[in-house]
Design a protein around this nucleic acid. Structure first.
Lengths: 259, 259
DNA sequence: TATGAAGTGTGCGATGGCGCACACATCCTT
DNA sequence: AAGGATGTGTGCGCCATCGCACACTTCATA
């Protein structure tokens, strides 16, 4: 395992200091320099697709704000979310494992920004940047754990728990307590009917944990939400912590250096 | 992407010719030589655990015959299968992504054999063996796709389809039409009640697709089983083919060289 | 400030799978 | 050949979620 020095001690590049993506922020300055010129800032709008299922992965996205869903498209046309990607991660990393095409659809759930790099350029940089490579592979692993936990969760846990888990994950990744999310959208992500979400959300609302207002959902009681969620939230967060340090989703400046 | 020469043209090592594990078999002779001395043949008994959830991954297993389940352990004690590993793969590869502990339990479902190597030795070899590294990363990706598809499948597909899918996967990995599998065991894997499996299996049996005989299940009509299964089987198999060539589960000697 | 669009709450019959229980069949052992 | 252990089929009430439908509320905009 590589020992990464605290990123904060090596930031001559002014852009580096403003990057919120955890992986980029954690890079030592010399590696950031290698990649910085190849990154293009892009704004992500709600509903925008970054990768289409089955199509080549031409760009990789270091998410900086907002978050992205990875969705498996079933043949009956129903999409189903398998994982969330926020500023802690990257959409399209599977190119580093040798994939050329995307097995999932990645699309923006909450508008934000990202740094885009071409697949070819990323591979070039990675060949010269062992810290970056190590961070990306670790992220790949954590994402895999998230997906695996989702598989178990989908089979075993009731919607109320799954909804709470999903809201926690969304809250972590967006960083704000008020999210622009319709029940319709959440229903698609969780693969259930919208009216079923309505009932589950109503229960959380009556318990004073969240408030729903026409496309905006506000998290009132984070702890209450954690209690309402299944273990799956914590299982994934803890795997993240064990590979990336103690504060997976806080702003990079507040984060302990990676171990 | 590395261009791998056909393994068959480079087999001075007599052991190499007998290896059924697809990854080892696909290695060029010089790389096989690097790893061969560090591999220890082990027999795997039904129910044997290779890795415990949460515990360090000390050994990595190149499965040679039989197959392994990767299971997520939920806090209520219920295990749930997230993926199958046969001679096409390896149990414990996540060490190459930087994981130190196993997030899943891996255990033997059908007795067989494997080649074991310590994590430390594998990492050493991989540093000098680019083909091996490439193959292992590609396998990691394909396994990830399997898990992702399982997440969607668990949420959307009915047990009859899931059972058929699972039997196909087991059939592929074991290579034999008669499997020693109780309904009890399958029920645990799929996360449902045993009696629910009994009903679904009864339907397949009435359709003449399988036969059940006290812990032995015989696949009578492979095509019928494929028709009864959901798309998820084919989705995973096709991802495998796109990364490893046309014949994922046949014996290595019948397999086209990797592209 | 009226109107429509978007989003949310609710109702009702249907159904897949749960939880539990038990009978029956097959195999192994003695 | 008898008896126990293991494995399979079935029944019944229950519940979460489905599928569909509709009313109500909030917001944006003309």
């Amino acid at each position: 395992m590589l020992e990464l020095p605290p990123a904060e001690q090596h930031v001559p590049n002014p852009i580096h200091a403003t990057v919120r993506n955890r992986i980029l922020a954690a890079l030592p300055a010399e590696e950031f320099k290698l990649i910085a010129g190849k990154l293009h800032r892009v704004e992500l709008a709600l509903g925008q697709s970054l990768h289409r299922a089955g199509e080549p992965i031409e760009q990789v996205f270091f998410v900086d704000s907002g978050f992205i869903s990875a969705l498996t498209m079933l043949s009956d046309g129903a999409p189903l979310e398998i994982g969330l990607i926020g500023a802690e991660g990257v959409a399209g990393v599977s190119v580093l494992l040798g994939a050329t095409n995307s097995y999932s659809e990645t699309m923006c759930q909450t508008a934000g920004g990202a740094y885009r790099i071409t697949t070819a350029e990323l591979k070039e940089v990675v060949a010269q940047a062992p810290h970056l490579r190590d961070l990306l592979l670790r992220y790949t692993h954590v994402f895999h754990v998230q997906v695996a936990q989702t598989a178990a969760c989908n089979a075993h846990h009731e919607l109320g728990q799954r909804l709470a888990r999903w809201l926690l994950a969304a809250h972590d990744r967006s960083g704000v307590a008020e999210l622009s999310l319709t029940q319709d959208l959440i229903a698609v992500m969780l693969g259930v009917r919208r009216s079923t979400v309505s009932i589950a959300a109503g229960t959380l609302q009556k318990a004073g944990v969240i408030r729903y207002q026409h496309g905006r959902i506000t998290i009132l009681d984070r702890v209450g939400l954690e209690n309402a969620a299944c273990e799956c939230y914590e299982a994934v967060a803890s795997e993240y912590r064990s590979l990336f340090g103690e504060h997976p989703f806080e702003s990079p400046s507040a984060v302990a250096p990676l171990a």
